[in-house]
Amino acid sequence: MKPMLHRLFILLAVFFPLITEAAKIEKGEIAGAKFMVAVPEGWQGQLVLLAHGYRHEGSPLEADFDPEGDLARPLLEKGWCVASTSYRRNGWIVEDAIEDVRSLYGHVEKKHGDVKRCVVVGNSMGGLIATLIAEGAVERVHGVVAIGTYLGKEESQGEGYHDSLTWKPEVPLIFLTNMTELDHPRHYREKAGTERTALWEVKRAGHCNVSGAERASALMAVNEWMDGKVPEKDKDGTLPPPDRPSTAQPVEGGLQGKAATISPAWGSVSTDLVAADLAKLGLKPGSTGWLKTPKKKAEVTVCTHFSDAPEGKAAIYLDANGWVQITQNGGRITDDFGLAAGDSFELLGSPDEKR
């Protein structure tokens, strides 16, 4: 094998200490695509593959997910292995992404044992990838959950639906979709029929603005569908966010919170602030406050979801899992404010420059 091809197929894997008692974490790279796998103790062959959405070409390749998060943790506790791939590059990468999902599936089997049941969960462009997989693009996948699914062509290719769609799913397929993004899933079901498709509407605006619990509920419904228990085909998939207690520390004019996790791909921040903290500061959608870090202090707009954030401005919103997110539409809030995971920041409830 030529050196270049040899390097292409080299797989580098590093095992990390247990994050929870239930899982072992593996990270590595296959053909340029990074991956992360969380394997529960005593794994019996149930696998969830995560297919992420579009990421800008200049963003770092990132496959990490939070094993303690609202989706992964309950799956791991139920004995499911969870795996994700960065894909080999960013941008509009449907065909190569399918190959990267297939390669990760093969790696899990080779490294950890036979896969007896596999569900693919995809977001946005990943929802298109997952839908194509439901149509047979990857063998031995038994069910699919497609979230906030975009089924169109790349913008440069013109309007219409993706050319590879056959409109013939071979396995159960649940579309989990916000109420503002129903057109593509509805069109798919009109063409494909309802025998193997279901549409669960989340009564919440936004793009892929669904909680871990809502995703897990759809995934478990697909799992039961494989066993012959057909779910409700047209359903309100909305679940209330958990009532999370505040852990914020009071500071003059506001509250101190921490950056819990960072999105390397988007430069956004998930914090430990909750709905009660926003209420205490009198912050609600449409209002403004101030975000303060050692690097910068600036006004922030309170939005209902990421898609509602003003272009180029710092914004905060309460996500579907009940956590306050800090973001910048068209920018990287981590770079602008110098925030890293574990850093403290202050959220002030009034746009008063004297503070």
Rank of each mutant, 00 (worst) to 15 (best):
V300T: 00
P351T: 15
I98S: 02
A279V: 14
E77R: 15
D163E: 14
R355L: 05
V120D: 05
R196H: 06
P264V: 08
V119R: 05
M226Y: 01
E195I: 09
L173I: 09
L18D: 02
L132F: 10
A216W: 11
V141R: 00
G42P: 05
V119D: 03
A33I: 02
N90A: 12
G338L: 12
A146I: 09
K34W: 00
V269W: 13
L165V: 07
G91M: 09
L50W: 00
T166L: 15
C118H: 05
I333Q: 09
R355Y: 02
A265S: 14
A213N: 03
P241F: 01
L173V: 09
A213Y: 04
V274W: 02
M220E: 05
A97R: 08
L255P: 06
R244S: 11
D243R: 06
S103P: 10
A260F: 13
C118P: 09
I19P: 01
G69A: 01
V101R: 02
E346S: 14
G212L: 10
A38R: 14
L281M: 04
E154N: 15
E155S: 05
V101I: 15
N123A: 09
E29P: 08
G193P: 01
K78P: 00
K168P: 00
S287E: 07
K2E: 03
P242Q: 07
G342K: 03
R186S: 06
L128Y: 09
E299M: 13
K24P: 02
Y161K: 14
T149D: 00
E170T: 08
D100P: 08
L5M: 01
Y105E: 11
T177S: 10
H305G: 04
A260N: 08
C81Q: 05
K280G: 10
A130M: 12
T85P: 06
S268W: 15
M179Y: 01
A192M: 11
S270F: 14
T20V: 08
L219T: 03
L104W: 00
T131E: 03
D70N: 07
E201W: 04
P17W: 12
V145P: 00
I333L: 11
P351S: 07
A146S: 07
G32M: 01
R204T: 06
P242H: 12
A97S: 04
D96N: 13
E353N: 13
S287L: 13
V210C: 01
Q46S: 12
K110A: 12
E181C: 11
K2T: 07
P245H: 11
R140S: 02
G282A: 10
E353Y: 07
S287F: 06
V141K: 04
E170V: 09
A63K: 00
I25W: 13
L71T: 05
G338D: 00
L18M: 15
A33S: 15
E26F: 12
L339D: 05
H107L: 06
E21S: 08
A218Y: 05
G152E: 09
G228R: 07
T293R: 12
